[in-house]
Computed example of a mutant assay.
Amino acid sequence: MADKSHAPMRKKEKKDEAADMTKDGKEVKSEGQKTEDNGEAAANNGTAANDQNGDFEVEPMELPPFEIIAGDRIDPLVFRFQFKNVEYSSGRNKTFLCYLLDKGNPADGLYKGYLEDEHSGSHAEEAFFTQCLPNYDPALKYTITWYVSSTPCSACATKIAEMLKARRNMKLSIFAARLFEWEEEEIQAGLKALHGAGCKLRVMKPVDFSYIWDTFVENEEQPLNLWEDCKENYEYYQEKLADILQ
């Protein structure tokens, strides 16, 4: 699957993630259209140093590969930041995938957890099949539900569609907080391929965010207070998805 660290994969406007997670105030849809300050961009992409003319010179910084992180509960601040359904997702450069897995055997129960990816290496979508479902059994009936921070990249979508066509005993539903790069033709083609392979695709409703909060987040029994414009942004994304899949 493709490397999300390169365009046209998931948006990577280089802002400090911790600052974005804790900042107050309303995020507007024009946020991502603002030009980043040159000094900030330099600091985020490498080490800045002055040359003899006093200009900044960026020294490349190699990002180490990050392994897929798996767990049961997500930090509440991370959830609020990564799953926020704003249109321009500044700093949200990874995928969070919360899953429910039913293998059709009541004795096994329902498997659940989450995966996250970052930088190079496998994407969370690919990692689900290699880490959570490594031993495929054609005799079983799999029902899989994903709640993802954004829809898959084109490469992941294509591979998942091929897998669903080959494994007719596997049903997958994907509920996404945001549509990733939905304007790109190859992304739209990937979403159509998923839909054509029988995958149920839907943008997450406000009630879905509350469900994730209760099921996958270290919420300390505190209720989720949804952010401003959550419903409006859901309707915006759902309309875009409907246009793509029609």
Rank of each mutant, 00 (worst) to 15 (best):
K171M: 01
M9A: 15
E186M: 04
N135C: 10
E27G: 04
R92I: 01
Q238D: 07
I144K: 08
Y136W: 09
Y136L: 12
R178I: 01
P206Y: 03
V203C: 03
G190P: 03
A41E: 10
A177R: 00
K112L: 11
S30W: 05
A41S: 08
P223E: 15
A70T: 10
I144H: 08
E59N: 14
G54I: 13
Q246T: 15
N233S: 11
Q52S: 14
W182I: 02
A124M: 12
A161P: 07
K171Q: 04
Y136H: 09
Y236W: 03
G71M: 13
T158S: 12
D51M: 12
K14T: 04
M21E: 06
D243G: 00
Y147A: 00
N44T: 14
D229T: 03
F180W: 03
E118L: 13
I68A: 08
D51W: 07
T35N: 11
L191D: 00
R168Y: 00
A18D: 10
S30D: 07
S173H: 11
S30M: 12
E116C: 15
Q222N: 07
C156V: 05
T151Q: 00
I160T: 07
T151G: 00
A2L: 02
T151A: 00
P138F: 14
D51F: 11
H123L: 05
K141C: 07
E116G: 08
K112E: 06
G91M: 04
R178C: 02
N50P: 03
E228L: 08
W213C: 13
E125W: 01
S89R: 07
E185Y: 09
A127S: 05
V78G: 02
T143I: 08
M9L: 12
Y88H: 14
D75E: 12
D16V: 04
L140G: 01
V78F: 08
E220G: 02
T47G: 12
N50R: 13
I174F: 01
L63N: 12
N38W: 09
D214P: 04
K103F: 04
K14Y: 03
T215H: 11
D37F: 10
E17W: 02
N85R: 07
K205F: 06
K200S: 13
R168D: 05
E57W: 12
E59F: 09
